[in-house]
């Protein structure tokens, strides 16, 4: 399972980086989205994939049934998803404003001093 996920993560990173190296800002943002998905899967994989019981105490018991799965990676990923959602939506709005101000989505035409 780890091997498969490692390839998936690698694929997402490769696709994301490829998109980011194009000249269009739209593709750059798509690349960032792919990259953040890749990272989320990476955290999931790096934090030891196991088949185990959920970390919830059953009725009448004092502690959950061992072996217990680690809930923290999911919490981290959830936080990361929320943050990347907010950041990506901001990036889209910014892209729109940049397009309005500059009139292009070609990165090569965003040089700082071209007056």
């Amino acid at each position: 399972m780890e091997t498969i996920l490692a390839f998936v993560v690698g694929g997402l990173f490769a696709a994301g980086l490829y998109m980011m190296m194009r000249r269009s800002i739209v593709k750059l943002i798509i690349g960032l989205a792919l990259l953040s998905h890749g990272v989320n899967l990476l955290i999931f994989t790096a934090a030891n994939l196991t088949r185990a019981n959920p970390p919830i105490v059953p009725d009448g018991a004092k502690q959950p049934l061992p072996p217990v799965a680690d809930p923290l990676p999911q919490a981290l990923i959830l936080t990361a998803i929320v943050i990347s959602f907010a950041v990506l939506s901001f990036a889209l709005v910014l892209l729109h404003r940049v397009y309005q101000a500059v009139g292009t989505d070609d990165i090569d035409r965003l040089k700082p001093v071209d007056e």
Binding site: M20, I25, L28, L32, L35, V87, F90, A91, L94, L95, R97, V98, A101, V102, L110, K111, P112
Partner: peptide
């Protein structure tokens, strides 16, 4: 922002997101 500020902003945002 005006044009120059937007150009600066997009670079700042992208590098920080990476």
């Amino acid at each position: 922002g005006d044009q120059a500020q937007m150009k600066g902003a997009i670079k700042y945002v992208v590098i920080n997101l990476i």
